[in-house]
Design a protein around this nucleic acid. Sequence first.
RNA 1: GGUCUCGUCGUCUAACGGUUAGGACGCCAGGUUCUCAUCCUGGCAAUCGGAGUUCGAUUCUCCGCGAGAUCACCA
Length: 475
Amino acid sequence: MKPTRTRFAPSPTGFLHVGGIRTALFAWLLARQHNGAFILRFEDTDKKREVEGAREHLMASLRALGLDYDEGPDIGGPFAPYVQSERLENYQAWAQKLIASGRAYADPYSAEEVDTFRAQARAEKRAFLYRHHRPENPPAWDGSTPLRFRSEPKAYTWHDEVMGDLSTGPEVIDDFILIKSDGYPTYNFAHIVDDAEMEISQIIRGQEFLASVPNYLNLYEAFGIAPPSMATVPHILGPDGNKKLSKRDGAKDVLDYIRDGYLPEALINFIASLGWNDGTEQEIFSRQDLIEKFSMDHVQKSGARFDERRLQWLNGAYIRQMPLDQLYTCVKQFWPAEATEYDHTYKLYVLGLVQERLKYFSELPELTRFFFVDLPINPELITTHKQLRKLSLDELRKLLLAAQATLSESAFDVKDLIARLNDLLEQTEQKPAVLFSLIRIATTQAAASPGLAESLAILGPERSLARVQAQIDAL
RNA sequence: GGUCUCGUCGUCUAACGGUUAGGACGCCAGGUUCUCAUCCUGGCAAUCGGAGUUCGAUUCUCCGCGAGAUCACCA
């Protein structure tokens, strides 16, 4: 059996969003699963669309997700270069083979003339076929005009790893352009040459190419080479509509998810399970699980909608199962500014308290700020509280004074705090919902916070008591 | 308009032609002496429609309907 060699071949025209990364992920998984090679190739044959910095961005995105490639533009490999604009002579050589065998010819028409043909077909509600206008005696090709493939229309049936058995009639086969008048090859031509030269065993790509496959098959035949196995994955759709997920609809750069504090492992798990499952009820797949269990024939044929809530849940699940010290290194850049003057031990303790409620790292500041700085008194926390708003200012003051008295004698370890808070419940004959809420609000000024005793223990006596006092003063 | 593809809870998805159509996210309710979260329990919720084949159809066939892709000197 031939070695597994898969590739990810983006055009450097922008960032990589979740939809785009999926084909890269699948290709990577197959390569790793079979101890094969994963190859990165830049398809930069349209110079007009190229975006400055996109190459670096694409490579950074793959790196961030841990999708390491074995051959590529920056690291080379046995079939270098891995950039199409640096391989023009290869395409010329292959084009000459077709010219020699009579399977390619110069397109004598101007772009405007072809547009006229196209408009005509459209007006007649027909699909446009260039070959209906194929010239009888095309001039010799001198490179100043497009070079077209001379197709041999016929019906095809073929197998797609995801879609299953597919078939089309001869009416979809056409004389597409191999080399543009600027000397660059089209995608349709270049990828076939490169995949053959680079010995790619399996092509994984989005469904926008599905309709072109019969044309590719026709070209493979003209070259007398066997096509690689093909897998067509459906698009990932936007969250609200049925549109393909695209940059225009606000699809986010995968690097933005990393910046927001999503874990690469969670992102990969999420993207993989968007349209794929292993047939069991497992939801969480480690990278190794995915490598072992991934299979193209379990990939869904229809497009999946992108649901960020599910990604959040998954990321939270990964965060929760992380060892604390590992999580600590991950969140280093995400602490609120006020945390800089606090030491490792303090922050580690804080992190331990919020670990189970953290969905992504950039939430860390809002979740932990009150551990590092006194927040301004927010009267609404009491006036909108369904129990506390019923109490008079005098009652509130009494409770806070009682709390102050009890806490001032505490050793401020969790155990002692719990004991004293429980005593205070009996003393004041209050429900926890009243007493604990009040103390929690006074000492945190936050709508939500971790357990009361644990929070107080971290804050310490000085700060806790000062905050209770501040709350009393503000009543 | 031609061609191709797809169609199970709101979302992601399971189900050799035989299941009370399962799981997960989300949502709702309850429990875990405060909030938020976690965890646990329970609940709501789906086979696009119509024929046909069959003892029996989510599954096979056909016709509708809906959705997506494509018909570029873009990939």
